[in-house]
Every structure is written in structure tokens, then in C-alpha cells.
Amino acid sequence: MFRNTVVRAQNLLKNNLQPTISRNIATSQKLASSHSTETDEQFDQRYENFFNQKDIDGWDIRRGVTDLWGHDLVPEPKILIAALKACRRVNDFALSVRILEAVKDKCGGRPDIYPWIIQELRPTLTELGISTPEELGYNQPELHTESVFNL
């Protein structure tokens, strides 16, 4: 603990007094807290950029959405638009419907968010020809399938 403090103080002094000397990567401490300093806008932008990659593939779309789903939030419509367009680029229709379903699930106990998101996504959905789960009749159970644990 004390050693950390000393090393940090030393680094600070060094950086302030001799700003021209570059930090030695091998010996200096990593000056980062465990808390993210990313703002919400940067976060949204990061994911939007991720899905906007030109050479994205289905694996990466799934990875990106799963990653995003790990956060305690409902993703912004602009991220979803980028994700849906990425689905279009890799020609995976099922994936786009699945993402919409997952968004509805992600809204949890707030039924007012999902209609708003669909309203925001509507131009994109029309442009790409994606049907919402409601239009496909997937908001209600369609088929009964035996539980996998009983197969």
C-alpha cells in the first residue's frame, strides 16, 4: 500500500518536473482505477462503431450484443439500428428478429420502453424489411415444444 503511494508520488513528481521523459512501461504502475471513466455517449458511440464495422460477421454481432446485454441498461435505438444494419450486411434475418425479442426481454418490468424503441426503429425496420416479433406473432407462444430436459 505504502509502496504504491510512494511509486505514484514518484511518478507524479517525475512527470511534472521532467515532462519530456517518457514513462517506462516496464516499471511504472498502471494509473487506472477500476471504475470506468467512459461517459454514456462514449459508451453508445463505442457500440455503434462496433456494429458499424464494414467487415463485421455474424459471430461478432452475436458477441457484441451479448456483451452489451451484460450491462444494466436498455441499449439506445441508435446502437440497435447499427446492429440491425449489421445483420442485414451478413444476411441473417433470424438474428435481427432475435435481437428485437431480446430487447423486449431486456426492458424487463418497464413495458413502456419497448414500444418507444420500436417507434424509433420503425424507419430502419421498414427500410430493411424486418418484421417485429409482434408482426410474426412471436409475442405469444406459438408452438409447444417439449422441454429439452425431457427429450
Binding site: A102, S131, E142
Partner: peptide
């Protein structure tokens, strides 16, 4: 609509609501 559903069911077994 049928084709869309068929495509979905080729990739996924059950929908969320199911």
C-alpha cells in the same frame, strides 16, 4: 411471413415468449 418464420425457426428452436 411464412418464409420469415421458417428462417427464424431454422436458427432458433423457441421464441422468447415460448
Amino acid at each position: 411471413l411464412e418464409e420469415k418464420k421458417a428462417i427464424y425457426r431454422a436458427s432458433f428452436r423457441q421464441t422468447f415468449s415460448e
